[in-house]
């Protein structure tokens, strides 16, 4: 057998070729590196919400519906102020009511436009992406309705507009910061443009943070437990809020973040899967080359 050694074994060149193939397949599936949590820039756009100024008129909710051509949503008349109950595929902006010992509090909910946005990270189509202006934009033509965004958002903001539950025809829907208005230079988001009392304002994020800090100092001087929400949360939100209580009291997470499972899934499970595919294919090809020389079909019974 010694004389035949070079004939029956895998040559070094072939071994290197196979290794390169396996490595190539392992890396071909790799995800483009995500920029390590960048901070929101001060010249990006943002919305600031001040619940102390808010009178709960819902003009923002109406303006959102009108500009984005969102249909009505019916609610059971159960004697509550909230209508509809919460954000949905056709309600992207909503005022909710909280009753506390001190009185009635309004709070506006919409997309938080995170810098570290879980929805952008898990979106397999690029339909959800960061606009250079800072907000999280949604290109509905690219969306295929997989719904990952609806399950990974720490705020539960995106909702699926389901056209057919059986076939899965659906589109993701959420507040887009009125991306069409900003891109066309018409103005800011309709909710902030329409607000009659200045509870919702829009502008450069840096300037709004200055305003928010001054406002928090003012409210604290009046004895209120005021704070800013969104300055550093999830890499910095582009919807800043002034809170008068713990975030949890508003149904907001203190430490919103991309669910660890999203990172485990996309940065551990999937790369390991790619390595498995690469190893399997390179291994099979290596065995194929080896066996082709070693086993002669004429001798097989």
């Amino acid at each position: 057998m010694n004389g035949e050694k070079s004939r029956v074994n895998i040559s070094r060149r072939e071994f290197l070729g196979l290794s390169a193939l396996g490595l190539g397949i392992s890396l071909a599936g790799a995800r483009p590196a995500v920029a390590a949590s960048r901070a929101a820039a001060p010249d990006e756009v943002a919305i600031l919400y001040d619940p102390v100024k808010c009178v709960g008129c819902k003009a923002c909710q109406m303006a959102c519906k009108r500009w984005n051509k969102l249909p009505n949503e019916s609610t059971d008349p159960l004697g509550i102020y909230e209508s509809p109950r919460g954000l949905s595929a056709i309600t992207w902006n909503i005022i909710k009511l909280r009753r506390t010992d001190v009185g009635w509090h309004f709070f506006n909910y919409q997309c938080m436009h995170c810098t570290d946005a879980a929805c952008v990270e898990v979106c397999p189509t690029g339909a959800l992406h960061h606009d250079p202006m800072g907000f999280v934009a949604l290109d509905r033509d690219l969306c295929n309705g997989c719904g990952y965004c609806t399950q990974f958002c720490p705020y539960g903001v995106p909702h699926l507009q389901v056209e057919n539950a059986l076939t899965g025809a659906a589109k993701s829907a959420k507040c887009t910061f009125c991306q069409d208005r900003l891109r066309a230079g018409i103005g800011g988001p309709s909710c902030a443009e329409v607000c009659p009392v200045g509870a919702l304002q829009w502008g450069k994020r840096g300037e709004l943070l200055e305003k928010a800090r001054a406002r928090v100092a003012e409210l604290q001087a009046k004895g209120m437990n005021a704070r800013i929400y969104g300055e550093n949360e999830a890499g910095g939100l582009h919807r800043l809020s002034i809170l008068l209580d713990e975030p949890e009291q508003y149904g907001l997470p203190s430490v919103p973040k991309t669910p660890g499972l999203a990172r485990f899934w996309q940065r551990v499970v999937q790369p390991l899967g790619n390595v498995a595919f690469g190893a399997a294919l390179a291994g099979i090809l290596g065995v194929f080359l080896f066996v082709r020389r070693k086993i002669r079909m004429e001798e097989v019974r």
Partner: peptide, 17 residues
Amino acid sequence: PFLRPLAQGEAGEFFRL
């Protein structure tokens, strides 16, 4: 990720069907 063009829009909806 390199199959992303096939996941987008109507192509993605067709493949899900």
